[in-house]
Simulated assay, not measured.
Amino acid sequence: MKKDLSKIISFVLIALGLISIGSVFIWAPVCGDLIPLASGKMVPMKCHYTGQAALLLSILLIVSAVESLVKKSLRPWTVMAIGAMLFSLSFDSVIGICMKESMSCHSTALWIKVVGALSVLCGLVDLFSKTKQVKN
């Protein structure tokens, strides 16, 4: 039963990683606008970098879930995935998103936060189920 739970959680984490990537690029993409600097250069808005960070953390989540499907031992990847997705919960305060509520990056941030929260929950369930299994 514990192995089945671990496999189910791994598949859920893969799906959550794909949902996060899809939200950044497909159904809730971050803003694509550029802002001018005082020097005249045009740079992407903060939400562009939030999307890039979400992409990297989602790839990390998918890799950790695939690794947990392949190996059968206690996984340091689970702890790393929990930490990475905890960071994704604070994107709007660490990196930032647009100030205007009407900008599309606010829906992207919501998707990223939901995926992050669900990933942390799955990671904690998997971690504590493995801890109990080791103690027994």
Results as ranks from 00 to 15, higher is better:
V79T: 14
M80L: 15
M80V: 12
M80R: 03
A81M: 06
A81N: 03
A81H: 05
I82T: 06
I82S: 07
G83N: 07
A84V: 02
A84Y: 02
A84C: 10
A84F: 07
M85E: 09
M85P: 02
M85T: 10
M85F: 10
M85Y: 04
L86E: 03
F87L: 14
S88H: 05
S88C: 15
S88A: 11
L89F: 07
S90I: 13
S90D: 10
D92E: 14
S93C: 05
V94K: 06
V94L: 11
I95T: 08
I95F: 12
G96R: 07
G96Y: 07
G96W: 07
I97T: 11
C98P: 04
K100A: 14
K100W: 06
K100L: 15
K100T: 13
K100P: 05
K100F: 12
E101L: 12
E101A: 13
E101I: 11
E101F: 07
S102E: 12
S102V: 10
M103A: 13
M103G: 03
S104Q: 13
S104R: 05
S104V: 12
S104P: 08
S104F: 04
S104G: 15
S104M: 09
C105T: 05
C105Y: 04
C105N: 05
C105D: 07
H106E: 04
H106W: 10
S107A: 15
S107I: 08
S107Y: 09
T108S: 14
T108C: 12
T108K: 02
T108I: 00
A109W: 01
A109R: 07
L110V: 08
I112W: 02
I112K: 06
K113I: 07
K113W: 11
K113H: 13
V114C: 11
V115Y: 00
V115L: 08
G116I: 02
G116N: 00
G116V: 02
A117M: 11
A117C: 09
L118S: 03
L118T: 01
L118I: 08
L118F: 15
L118D: 00
L118N: 04
S119V: 01
S119M: 00
S119A: 15
V120A: 04
V120R: 00
L121K: 00
L121A: 13
L121C: 10
C122T: 00
G123K: 00
G123Q: 00
